[in-house]
Design a protein around this nucleic acid. Structure first.
Lengths: 173, 173
DNA sequence: GGCTTGTTGAGACTCTTTCCCAACAAGCAA
DNA sequence: TTGCTTGTTGGGAAAGAGTCTCAACAAGCC
């Protein structure tokens, strides 16, 4: 397996990390007395070869397409491995409209999301102020904060333009 | 049906609203050309008789217990009506760990949640600053904000105490 | 190379939510 | 009030996401 390939493509958008994802995962598996198997390798390599958000179903589909023959990974294994990757801190899981969506966590800067309710696109932003606010609220309420989920709903720029165009057409009638 | 009874119990924790929930819902139904039926009345009355968070299953259960005979409401109707109540702006729906949870929206002040990952308890807080921050982020990104979901995860005070007790016991061994 | 034991994959299963459709009941009109 | 039209209900089946079971398999150790 080529670590360097994975490492390099990953480095494009990553903050500094000591190890490429697969090696990081191997550490985790070793620490837990779990085995480094072929399916786990295939899945991690695939997941970290690109940066989009994805869900389990899409992943199952893609793995089926890409490696139709011997390298396919079964559905239970996809779900199992995704959970392990979340446990290991390599992926982050969130649910958007009752559906589980995953994204890179390891080596990727902390951020929150803007969710366009029209086209479903997720975009990202980061705010230190939000973290400060969150921790302040926790302190006030005697709550030990370990994390948060913040999703801003609305309409993205592109969909706003579309809607305006639509509206203009209607106005002409 | 007694509006005043519903209205009074509701007023205890509400901000000012023009109408009790059932009347507000009737307006919505009328506007949509929908009918004011017995099941819808029973459900709304039950849901707005208390202020806790709840899920569809608990509601089905409670309605079955409370009105075993003719006044029970079927499962499909519970789901259908919950969706209508969300549409009408009377309830807010959120998913916590992939599970749909509902809470009062109409006449209830805006707030966000602290979620204890140990006992599952939800508590509430409000922050104007968060709203400002949210809108500022939206403006920056050319995103038209319509709402948000903010859940702070962690451990509530009670569970922190429990964990400490547990820990002390272990230390004694 | 052999052996132990964690892992995989097929398929069944669970859980939540929705769909289908025949029986029913709002609400309007006469 | 009665009758009629049409939206609504409830039972059961079905869909969709995710998990469980278990026999066959393959890491990793000796």
């Amino acid at each position: 397996m080529s670590h360097s390939q994975l490492g390099e493509s990953y480095a494009l958008t990553s903050v500094d990390v000591a190890l490429p994802p697969m090696e990081r995962f191997e550490e985790y598996l070793q620490a837990k007395g779990k085995r480094i198997t072929q399916p786990r390798r295939i899945l991690v390599e695939h997941v970290f070869s690109k940066h989009e958000h994805f869900d389990a179903d899409a992943l199952i589909e893609e793995l089926a397409q890409r490696d139709a023959g011997p390298k396919r990974v079964s559905r239970p294994t996809v779900y199992r491995t995704l959970n392990e990757l979340v446990e290991a801190g390599l992926l982050r899981k969130m649910d958007i409209g009752g559906r589980a969506v995953y994204e890179h966590d390891y080596g990727y800067p902390d951020h929150d999301h803007l969710y366009c309710t029209q086209c479903g696109k997720l975009s990202e932003f980061h705010s230190e102020e939000l973290i400060r606010l969150r921790d302040a609220v926790g302190r006030e309420q005697g709550f030990r904060v370990t994390g948060h989920k913040f999703i801003v709903n609305g309409t993205c720029q592109e969909c706003q333009r579309k809607t305006r165009r639509q509206k203009r057409k209607v106005d002409l009638i």
